[in-house]
Structures are given as C-alpha cells and as structure tokens.
Amino acid sequence: MNVKSLKDLIDICEKTGETLHKVIMDWEMLDTGYSNDYIIEKTSKLLSVMEEEYASKKGKEFKTLIGLTGSNGKKMLEYLPKAYVGENVFKAATIAVTMSESNASMGRIVACPTAGSSGVMPGVLLTLEESGIERDKLVLALIVAGGIGKIISMRASLSGAEAGCQAEIGSATAMAAGGAVYAMGGSPQAVSHAAALSLKSLMGLVCDPVGGFVEVPCVKRNAAGATLALLFADIAMAGVESVIPFDEVVDAMMAVGRSMPEALRETGKGGIAISPTARRIMKNLKDKLSIPEDN
C-alpha cells in the first residue's frame, strides 16, 4: 500500500469497494501500527475535546495574551439569530472564532492541523452535529480529514512558516470540507472535489500575523476557513467538480509557498503585519512582551 496521493486512496476504494475511512485507517495501520479501533477511539477523544471546550467557552469573553481579540465570538453568538448568511454558516464562523480566541488565551484546543487554524474543524464539525448528523459519522469524517491532511503534509506542508497561511487555514479548510462531504454521505470523489475547490480558493494566502502572534488576522481567518469549508462541501454535494485534481492543487500550493518571500511566512515582517496600525500596536506592546537580554 504505497499511498502518495488522495487519488491512490480513492483508487483503492473503487477497486475494493471499501469505504474511504477504512482505507485511510488501514494505511495508518501499515505506517504506524495503530489498530482501527485505536484510531477510532483516539479520534473520538479529539472530537470530545472540541465539544467540551466549545460547550464551556461558548458566549464567553477572553483575555488573550496580546489583547487584540477576545470578544468577537461573544458578539457573533449574540448576532447569530439575525445573520443574513443563514444560521449554519454563521454558527460555523462563530464557533471557529470562539475556539480561536480561546487558543489565543491559552485555552485547550485541538491542533487540527495547527494551533493557528484550530477553529476551522470544530466550526464545521460542531455545526454539523447541531444540525443532527450522528456523532459516529463525525468521527469518521475527522479520520477522512486526517487522511487529507496527511496527504498535504507528505506532498507539501502544514506550516505557515514554510508555505504561508494557505498551508494552515488552507489545509484546515480542505480537510474540513472533505470531512463535511463525508459526513453528509458524499462519495470519495466528492470529498476530493470539496477539498480541491476549497484549497484553490485560498491559494496564495500569506501568513502575516501582527507581531508574529496568533491573533490578528488569524482569529478571523478561522471564520473564513469554516465558512468556505461548508460552502464547498455543499458545492461538491451539488455535483460540481474541481477541474484540477486535489493532488495537483496541493503540489501547486507548495510551489506557491516556495516562491513566497520570507516576509510573508510567519515572520511578522510583511502583509498586514507591517501596516501603520500594526506597527503602532507593536510599538506600544514591545516593552511589555520581551525578556531583557542578560548573558
């Protein structure tokens, strides 16, 4: 089982008639020795952490480490009944922002795939759960998301420092979109299309956090990721296909990442991080944040 692409996994599904999550778990067993039961148990625990953390953080205000965010999730939850984009989409964005603000205030999160993008997956999965999709299906969706993320990690990168935000929020969104399709009962092909479409839409996104800290713009980009994931899951379920296959999109994303200057890869030296307002904020924070040199 020499898996190098999402296509390889889907080919195995089509040849053997096996489900996608089962093929991913068997691949995992060969790579790591973890049994199917172990993977399901551990994945279910990760979903539990998302559920417990959102239940305890919902509607709360946070005192974040830098203090540039912290009350957005609360504001969004209060506005939710009025949301023009509809309840599900706005709920996903609200959960994503809340979890991301919790992350910025040293809360417990699931790094799925990274801490900076940790709001996207709970935004999507918990919205699906509240809309009535069974929990067991969400565990399998999370396994499928893991398979998608592993393909990205093998062919490209999940690190903003290596390939920009497209590799973090972009990857999280592709994983969540694919997972959402799986939870909705879509085919392995539809999973692949949702992941490809969403990653294409975030292609080129730079990593430009103010001061290098995981708050601005990271918190609100998690809202964008969760929203896009649900949108492209629906688009794929409608039968829309990505002209460019997922694996080629991943390769393109990495090529774009390699051509990104270092200033746009988590250094806090480009993009909005060097806007006049960001510079002013950092000037005011500088003395508070660093440790005095003492050799």
């Binding site: 995992e28 994945t43 992350n103 205030s105 993320g149 990690s153 708050e215």
Partner: peptide, 22 residues
C-alpha cells in the same frame, strides 16, 4: 511516518505548537 492523529491533533494548550506546546 506521521500518524493522522498528529495531523488532526494533538489536544494541547494554545496558542502555538512550537512556542507553547514544544
């Protein structure tokens, strides 16, 4: 070889896997 559990996890305290968890 990386496990999918390291891709969809771990459960950790934020905000940064390299500057906090590591």
């Amino acid at each position: 070889m990386v496990s999918i559990l390291d891709i969809i996890g771990p459960s950790m305290i934020g905000p940064s896997s390299s500057h906090t968890l590591g």
